[in-house]
Every structure is written in structure tokens, then in C-alpha cells.
Design a protein around this nucleic acid. Structure first.
Lengths: 229, 229
DNA sequence: TGCAAAAATGCATCTCTTGCAGAAATGCCT
DNA sequence: AGGCATTTCTGCAAGAGATGCATTTTTGCA
């Protein structure tokens, strides 16, 4: 057993690992932008990062995961945030909190912008990105279900989470617009910093209205039954 | 030019092609059930279907497409239905119509049940299935946007379509439950025939309530501006 | 300094995917 | 019926990613 704290600072070894990982991602995204995703081979990436191809594959089970490394981390944090919310804290509140802490980085982060550009011109990657959205939906659905005291596979929870996550489609679409309108490949921050929070609020409004509508409908149905209609 | 009608009956050649395609799908699903998706190779499938491996790959660009052949066709019909709706017909109405005509086949169809079983035990296939859901969302988002006179990438359209398509998550989840509860692999119709339409109605209720909420919010915001708040 | 764990590497293999050219079949016209 | 054009199927081969395994190198710690 390690004597004291386990989380504070990872060993130097761990840090180096992380460093290598980031290097590979950086190099890979670079090549993807220059030559396209499909046209870039893993050995190429390995060369550029000064590691063996086998190492790349070890870090990233699928080539596509190189593109979504940050995305995965973002959703990791969502998962953590949803799990560690205080008693009584709503999923909506946790989401708001999470977005508020994530969004500020989205505009400036070079990685994010590069990723967007790469994904934008590859149907395959767009499809792959859905995996992460799906993961988000799963997380939110479970969280909402626990709020509502229902099952994660209930229509309400499912619709609510799907609608909430739709936010990302919008966000990405807007960024694409910005990038496209820009003409040049350079698509740095246009907006979305506070947009993200604002959009989420609208989404939450939508969702809560929807849920309420279903609850009312159910109540009416129940009373109708009681009255023997 | 062909003399008269062009659509009525496809040539015999076309029919045979379709026949081969279906044979391959049938055989493939069979093997997938028996040995699992990953453990089944394309040459195996080709052998079983008495065609060359190259032919299989020609018909189905990706091995996964063998699993979702019917799914793709279903969404083809959705696309057609949404395109050919009469003036004034709501997306919701078209959806209802579409579901009503599709759902009856879902329970009995052996293919569907087999597909579900295969997909259920493969994360990879579950992820792949999202591609079709995404396509559906795209279609519905466009349709709704044209109803609302907005852009398909507007939050409302996006949320509405996402929430609507969430129906399939629920449907599949329920069928999974049924299959799991059944114990034996035999998971034939438990419900969902009319469930699908009923669920859709609930979904549409949810969606319309959400949209209305957003519209109201927007209106209030506008009046607030006018009043100089 | 030396040892044990962890990481990186090299190698081999399997499978999918795709392009290309030739063979086979199908449809149609004379 | 025969012949021709088109479409499909087939066989071959190369390219790339994913993965298991054994080996070497690095790192952390006693």
C-alpha cells in the first residue's frame, strides 16, 4: 500500500506516459489536417512521434481514438461530475456546472478547432463521434432517471438526455458555419463561450417542459381510469 | 428510352441481384448468431452463400452493413415518406404514418429479432447502429425545420429530432428486456406492435411541449426587449 | 547498485477493404 | 437462334489496422 494520498500527483512515470500520449495526439492531428485522416497511416504517426507503431496502437485501440482523445476526457469529467453531485442537486444543475467549466476552453483550444476541422470532412469520423455523444446520453439518462425515480430506458429519460445532448450537434454545426464562412481554414473563436451555457439553458427549458407535459398526460390518464372513462 | 412505365417491375436481373443480397444477409445473420459477429469472417459468409468473398464486399461496403440492411431500408422509407408528404402535412403526422406502417413488421420479422440479438452483445455494433439513428435524426431535423421555418441546425429542430429518435433506444431496450427475461434465446413478439405508435405519440407530446416552451420564452424575451428591460 | 514492475518495441498473423482485370451471366436486338 | 453490349461475379493482390506474444528497455524503489 502506498503510505498516504493516492490521487494528488501521479508518479513521474505516469506523467511521462501522459506526455507521450499527448505528443502522439498532437502529432497525429497535425498529420490528419495536412493529409487527411484516411491518408495518414499509423506508422507515419509513429515516426513523427518517435515511437513504435505498436505503441500508438497500445495507447489508442482505434485510429479514430486519436481524434477524440479530448472528447473522451471531457465526457469522463461529465461522468465524474454527475456521480459526485450532492444530494438534492439536479442533473440539470450538474450539467450547467459542467458545461460552464468546460466551455471556456472550447474556443481557444487549438486541439478542439483542429479536431473539428478534421471531423468535419470525414463522414466516417462524424459517425464515430456519435459514440461519444451516445456515451453522454447514457450518462445523462441514468442521472435523470435517478432524479425522476424511473428507469434509464424510460422514454422520458431517454428523450431528455437525447435532447440535451443535441446541444453538441448545434454547437458543432455553428462552429462549422463559422469555419466555412471564414473561408480560410483558420476558425478561431467566433462565439460559443457563453453560448454553450445559454444553449444548455434553452435545452433544459425544452426538456423540463416536455417532461412536465408527459407527467400531466399521465396524471390525466390515471384520473380518467379512476373515473371509469 | 423504355416505352412506358419505368418503376413498376425491375428487370429479372435486378430481381436476382436483390435475391442474392437477401441470401447473403440471411446467411450472414445466421452465422453471426451462431458464432458471433467478430468471429465470423467474410470468406465464411461467402462460402455459406455460395458467392465469392469479393461479391460480399461489393454488396456491403462494411461487414457491419450486413447486420443493418433492413434498418437502412427502413430509414430509406422514412426519407421517402418525409419527402413526399402533402403540403400542410406535419412532420409529426408523417412520422406517425411511417411508424404505423413499419411497426407491424417489427415483432414477427425474424430478421429484426435476430439483428437485435446480435447487436445486443456487441458494443461495436451498438455504436455502429448509431449511424442509422443519426441519419434518422438528420431527416427529421430537416423536416421539422421546414415545418418551423427554421434551420435544421437550430436547437429546436435538433432537440426535437433527437428526442423523437430516442424512441428507438426505448424500443430496443424493451425488446432486450423481453429477450433477457425470456432467458432462452427465443424472443418473439412481446409487445411494441402498437407500443411503437403509442410511444411516438408520447414523444410528440414531449416535443411539442418543449418547442412551445421555447417559443414562449423567446416571445417573452422579445417583449422584454421592447419594454426596455 | 541491483531488482522487479511497467512500458515500449519488434514480429507475426489475421481480417477487412479496395482496385483491377478477366470470366461469366444476362438482356436485347437482328 | 446468334451475336453483342452491359452488368455482375470472380480471383488476385496489395494496403492498412488490430492484436497476441516474446523481448528489450526504461523507470521506480529498496
Amino acid at each position: 500500500m502506498t503510505p498516504d494520498t493516492e490521487v494528488p500527483e501521479a508518479g513521474l512515470r505516469e506523467r511521462k506516459k501522459q506526455q507521450t500520449r499527448e505528443l502522439i495526439v498532437r502529432v497525429a492531428l497535425d498529420l490528419f489536417v495536412k493529409q487527411g485522416f484516411a491518408a495518414t497511416t499509423i506508422p507515419e504517426i509513429a515516426d513523427a512521434a518517435d515511437v513504435s507503431p505498436r505503441t500508438v496502437s497500445s495507447y489508442f485501440p482505434a485510429k479514430e481514438d486519436l481524434v477524440f482523445d479530448l472528447t473522451a476526457a471531457t465526457f469522463d469529467r461529465l461522468e465524474a461530475r454527475l456521480h459526485e453531485r450532492r444530494d438534492g442537486e439536479t442533473t440539470a444543475e450538474a450539467l450547467r456546472d459542467w458545461i460552464a467549466s468546460e466551455a471556456p476552453g472550447w474556443d481557444d483550444d487549438q486541439q478542439m478547432n483542429v479536431r473539428k476541422r478534421v471531423v468535419h470532412e470525414s463522414e466516417h469520423l462524424q459517425a464515430y463521434s456519435k459514440r461519444f455523444i451516445a456515451r453522454g446520453e447514457e450518462l445523462v439518462a441514468h442521472s435523470i432517471a435517478s432524479d425522476l425515480g424511473g428507469h434509464p430506458d424510460d422514454l422520458e429519460a431517454r428523450m431528455a438526455s437525447a435532447a440535451t445532448l443535441a446541444l453538441f450537434s448545434v454547437l458543432n454545426a455553428h462552429k462549422d458555419d463559422a469555419a466555412a464562412a471564414d473561408g480560410s481554414g483558420n476558425c478561431q473563436g467566433t462565439h460559443s463561450r457563453e453560448d454553450a451555457v445559454e444553449l444548455l439553458d434553452r435545452a433544459l427549458l425544452f426538456v423540463s417542459a416536455g417532461i412536465r407535459a408527459l407527467q400531466i398526460a399521465r396524471a390525466e390518464e390515471a384520473s380518467a381510469h379512476t373515473l371509469g372513462t
